[in-house]
Design a protein around this nucleic acid. Structure first.
Length: 289
DNA sequence: GTTACGACCTGCGAGC
DNA sequence: TGCTCGCAGGTCGTAA
């Protein structure tokens, strides 16, 4: 499942293979993949024709290819999205949704997405703070911890003002972006914080520690090419990451905690799962789980 | 304004 | 063997 490190790996790959190239043709093979493009599939393809990719950028899990007309091709991988750079004669992937070819006749860019939670759309670039430009759908997304302009103090103040559970808060992309279910569980395990801890009960030190661990775990994952459990996450060359071997919490139900040896548990959380150590991450008092 | 929750979607494995 | 059901989970719209 692509979270910040996985998206960054893909961004780097696309930047290497696609920057400076001009799009010749675009095929939309599944209209849902461009559902967020207001003009529909035909307009999507028409507007990309002849556009040159200036740069490839990212904020949190959103990625965009800045084009030479003040617009951007916004790409979100959702849960199962992949962007692959393939030879022109490559066999199309079973779940290929969008395919772009380039005027130089080189490798094509494939957007592949089994569950179609991801998608592509063209949006105008909007100027935000620090003189940066982001696509309109990304304006409300908070900066991620790898962003040089990320403000830790603002995060610490913001999370302590909220009235919710800590895991809900760090999954809220308007407070801090890039964290998904896997890295949320890993960060909370490292910080020894229970996922249901009320945010307004967090001390400054706890909030700061959590942020440091969230940042660190994503940096480590990035260094190893991201987390991969199966073929649903790969880089632009179709290769999997290795960070799943380093996970301490996510998916480890029934296994001993790497810190204290207690048996890890899985609990229902917001229609999904949360993994924790029952000893290291004790349930806060008077909290229903 | 803030928070919680369901819907969207497809492949896979478990259970019958 | 084939069918049904639950699960995986990021984002958005809607309800409270």
């Amino acid at each position: 499942m692509p979270e910040l490190p996985e998206v960054e790996v893909v961004r780097r790959g696309i930047a290497t293979w696609v920057s400076g190239r001009t799009i010749e043709t675009t095929q939309v093979l599944h209209s849902r993949a461009v559902r967020n493009h207001t003009g529909g599939p035909k307009d999507f393809a028409r507007r990309l024709k002849g556009r040159t990719v200036v740069s490839v950028n990212r904020r949190g899990k959103f990625m965009w290819l800045s084009l030479d007309d003040d617009h951007a091709l916004v790409t979100h991988l959702g849960m199962s999205g992949q962007v692959l750079v393939q030879p022109l004669d490559a066999e199309p992937e079973k779940h290929m949704r969008v395919r772009c070819t380039f005027t130089d006749g080189g490798r094509a860019m494939h957007f592949v997405d089994q569950r179609t939670f991801g998608g592509m759309a063209i949006h105008e670039l909007v100027e935000v703070d620090h003189g940066q430009w982001v696509p309109e759908p990304v304006v409300h997304i908070a900066r991620d911890p790898l962003d040089p302009f990320f403000d830790p103090d603002s995060f610490i103040t913001g999370i302590r003002k909220k009235n919710t559970q800590v895991k809900r808060a760090i999954l809220d992309q308007t407070l801090i972006s890039g964290i998904g279910n896997i890295y949320a569980d890993e960060s909370l395990w490292r910080a020894k914080i229970h996922w249901a801890t009320p945010t307004n009960r967090l001390t400054k030190i706890q909030a700061s520690t959590l942020l440091q661990h969230a940042t660190q775990v994503m940096v480590e994952a990035l260094d190893q090419g991201g987390t991969s459990f199966d073929s649903l996450y790969v880089n632009v060359n179709g290769e999997s990451g290795y960070f799943s071997r380093e996970l301490n919490a996510y998916g480890r139900e029934g296994e001993p905690c790497d810190r204290c040896g207690s048996i890890m548990v899985r609990e229902a959380f917001a229609n999904r799962s949360s993994f924790r150590c029952p000893r290291c991450q004790r349930k806060p008092k008077a909290v229903k789980t």
